[in-house]
Structure formats: C-alpha cells, structure tokens
C-alpha cells in the first residue's frame, strides 16, 4: 500500500503540464460577453419598482448626505478613561441594572394595582352613596281590597250558573272581557301597594275599578233578567 502510493505520486509528478495560450482566454471572454450582450438583456422582463422604494432610496441618500456633512468630534481622553472604568466595573453595573429593572416592575405593578382599584371601584359603584334612616309609620291595611273583589268574582260565576245561555252572548262576553281586564289591572295595582306608605293614588284607581266592575256586574245581571 505504502509502495503504490509513492509510485502514484511519482507518476503524477511526471505528467506533462500545459499552459493555454492567451488567445484561448480571449475567446472564452468574448463568448461570455456575447451571452450577456445588450440584446439579451433587452429581452429580460422589466419591473417598475413602487414609488415607496424610490422614496426610501431617496431618503437614504439624503440621510447619508446629511450625515456626511455633520461635523466630527473626537472625544477628550477622560471620556475614554471613564468608559474604560465603567467597563471594568461591569459587576456593579449588573447590580444597578437589576435594581433599575426591579424599580420598573414595581412601578408597573403599582400602576396596575392603582388602575385596578379604580376599575374595581367603578364596577362597585352600587355600594357607594348608600344612606340609612328610620321612620315610624302606620301599617296600611292591604286586606280590604281582596274582599270586595272576591265577592264580585263570585257574583259573576253565579250569573253564568243561573243563565248559561246569556253568558254565551257576544254582548255578555264583551262585558266579561272588560271585567277581566279590570280585574287584571286591579291585581297589578295590588302588587304595588305599599305596606309603609299611603297609597292614595293607587287606592283611588282601585276604587274606580271596583265601581266600574260593580257597574258591569249590574249590567250583566240586568241582561240575565
């Protein structure tokens, strides 16, 4: 193996060496130029860049021009010395950075806490401005309105039992519908009666309803006779 390798190296060393003439290189260059001739370039597809590209280029050029016109200063020696010192105190800086970061995060947390406090307070405005007081009041009699109503309702049932044919007449049905509307309204009013306040207006309404119901019942009775 070792022997063959030496033989191969010797054989390669003994191979003849050729250097191409200059004209060969010239022809290669002519061929390359031909392939990139203007005609071929002309056949390539053309793209118009958007305006923003030109604007960017323009801006960069302007900025470079401006930068080049800026005066240059060399900092005094002590500045470099200061930088050098600060680099050598890297550990101290890291500690300072940590403190700064800590302060930043604490401030952020405090800001969130304060904001949260106000948001929380806004949501719970329901608990603000609540005041308390006491009153001595006379309890209102709520039962009195139920009794009359029940009596009128019973009368209506009695009328229809006595004379079912009349109850089916359109006129009677209309009166019954009116009576039921009044009864519904009366129930709605009864729901609103206050135990602790005078209910003058509501009681007037109830009285009017009962009077009208009574009048309707009388009319219904008259129809059955």
């Amino acid at each position: 193996m070792e022997k063959n390798r030496k033989i191969l190296k010797d054989a390669l060393r003994n191979l003849p060496v050729y250097q191409p003439e200059d004209r060969v290189w010239d022809r290669i260059e002519v061929h390359l130029n031909k392939s990139l001739s203007l005609d071929k370039l002309g056949q390539l597809r053309k793209f118009e860049p958007p305006k923003s590209v030109w604007d960017n280029i323009d801006e960069k050029l302007t900025r470079n021009e401006k930068l080049s016109t800026l005066p240059k200063y060399n900092p005094p020696e002590k500045v470099w010395e200061s930088i050098d010192r600060s680099l050598s105190n890297g550990k101290d800086n890291q500690a300072k950075n940590r403190i700064i970061k800590l302060v930043k995060w604490t401030s952020a947390a405090a800001a969130i806490f304060i904001l949260g406090f106000f948001v929380f307070t806004k949501v719970n405005t329901d608990n603000r401005n609540i005041s308390y007081s006491e009153e001595w009041v006379e309890l209102q009699d709520m039962q009195q309105w139920d009794e009359g109503g029940q009596m009128l309702e019973n009368t209506l049932v009695l009328i229809c039992e006595e004379n079912p044919v009349v109850c089916k007449s359109p006129e009677f049905k209309k009166m019954k519908a009116d009576w039921e509307f009044l009864n519904k309204s009366k129930q709605a009013i009864l729901m609103q009666l206050s135990k602790y306040d005078t209910n003058t207006e509501l009681e007037i309404m109830l009285t009017e309803i009962e009077l009208e119901q009574t009048s309707l019942i009388k009319e219904m009775i008259a129809n059955t006779i």
């Binding site: 401005n129 005041s131 006491e134 009153e135 006379e138 309890l139």
Partner: peptide, 13 residues
C-alpha cells in the same frame, strides 16, 4: 301598636 319602625335604605347615583 299601629305604628312600626321602618328601616329606609337609599342610594343616590
């Protein structure tokens, strides 16, 4: 006997 003490709770917005 006819009177009672009522607690009044109110809120203003």
């Amino acid at each position: 006997q006819a009177q009672v003490k009522v607690q009044v709770v109110s809120q203003k917005i």
